[in-house]
């Protein structure tokens, strides 16, 4: 099966503190995953779990400490320049109000992208191309023409941001928390848009989020990240339907359900992230309800259970 993106043993280490008391934090610790064509792959986890760092490495904003990223069997370093890379892979950011400069008209970004990539070469006029992409996200050029970001709503801006990223006809979109700043009532329109793009344009999406409910709704496969590790990967139905790793179970339990009958029943403990990053065994051992002696000493290996890859001693026989 062809693969759009393959990430192998990707690691990023950040050093904290002064020259003498260096603290090395593995923000991303040897993660591997693949993204298939026309697939939405979700990376989910709590704040500070390394999901944004992973996205930044895929986008080439941050050099990895080790490991490799291959796009259609070519290494990311083989692309001569950033431009060739961004023609294939585009980004959608978290806060649409910060994506666009408030003092520049939104349409400028569209014309600039077309100019940078010389997309109007094939005899098609820039405005026709822009109109086509805007139509795909449910907007039109007349709606955004002459407007500044402050004059559009958050939902409209986020859709404009997605339309801009589609201009180069990318094969892969990296969407970092694309709906967390959009209103709940408009959130579904953005999420539905990703589904539509996957089905009609065969674009693959890496969807990064901490909202598991939208992740379930939109994605095909999911990877749950915790303190730099992917602790569980597999199809979204399997991972979120029958969670194996105790951390996935905790995450699922913590989503406030929109039903007053299903309130939180137990209370949780809350640890600081630095403490967990520096843990030597399983990083979740400090909060895990099923912790064993071995968890505190040795980091668990990946193990396959019913088509799902889990990093947990519980399943090692």
């Amino acid at each position: 099966m062809p693969v759009v993106l393959e990430v192998k043993d990707l690691t990023k280490i950040f050093s904290l503190g002064s020259l003498f008391s260096r603290l090395r934090i593995k923000a991303v610790d040897q993660i591997s995953f693949t993204v298939k064509p026309a697939e939405i792959f979700t990376l989910a986890g709590e704040s500070g779990c390394g999901k944004t760092t992973t996205a930044r490495m895929i986008l080439g904003f941050e050099p990895p400490t080790s490991g490799e990223i291959r796009y259609q069997n070519r290494k990311i370093e083989e692309f001569q320049d950033k431009k060739a890379w961004f023609k294939e892979v585009q980004a959608v950011f978290q806060n649409p109000f910060e994506t666009f400069n408030p003092l520049r008209k939104v349409e400028c970004y569209f014309f600039e992208t077309i100019h940078n990539y010389q997309l109007d070469k094939e005899g098609r006029k820039a405005s026709v191309l822009i109109e086509e992409k805007l139509q795909q996200v449910g907007l039109s050029l007349s709606e955004i023409a002459g407007k500044y970001p402050g004059e559009l709503s958050g939902g409209q801006l986020q859709r404009a941001s997605i339309a801009r990223s589609l201009l180069t006809n990318p094969f892969l979109l990296v969407a970092d928390e694309p709906v967390s700043m959009v209103d709940a009532s408009l959130r579904m329109s953005i999420v539905n848009l990703f589904r539509k793009l996957r089905d009609s344009l065969e674009v693959s999406v890496i969807y990064i989020t901490h909202d598991l409910a939208t992740a379930y709704y939109v994605s095909d496969r999911i990877g749950i990240m915790f303190r730099g590790n992917i602790v569980e990967t597999g199809s979204v139905e399997e991972v979120l339907g029958k969670p194996k790793h105790p951390y996935t179970q905790l995450l699922l339990e913590s989503i406030p359900k929109p039903d007053p009958q299903e309130r939180y029943k137990t209370s949780i403990t809350f640890l600081e992230e630095k403490e967990e990053y520096l843990r030597s065994g399983c990083k979740f051992a400090g909060r895990c309800p099923e912790v064993q002696e071995i968890c505190k000493q040795k980091a668990p290996e990946d193990i396959s259970v019913n088509g799902v890859v889990v990093k947990c001693h519980k399943y090692i026989k």
Binding site: S185, M188, N192, Y217
Partner: peptide, 14 residues
């Protein structure tokens, strides 16, 4: 419009 885990039927915003 709120998505639920275990339910992939399309949902619409207002």
């Amino acid at each position: 419009s709120l998505p639920k885990i275990g339910d992939k039927t399309p949902r619409e915003s207002a």
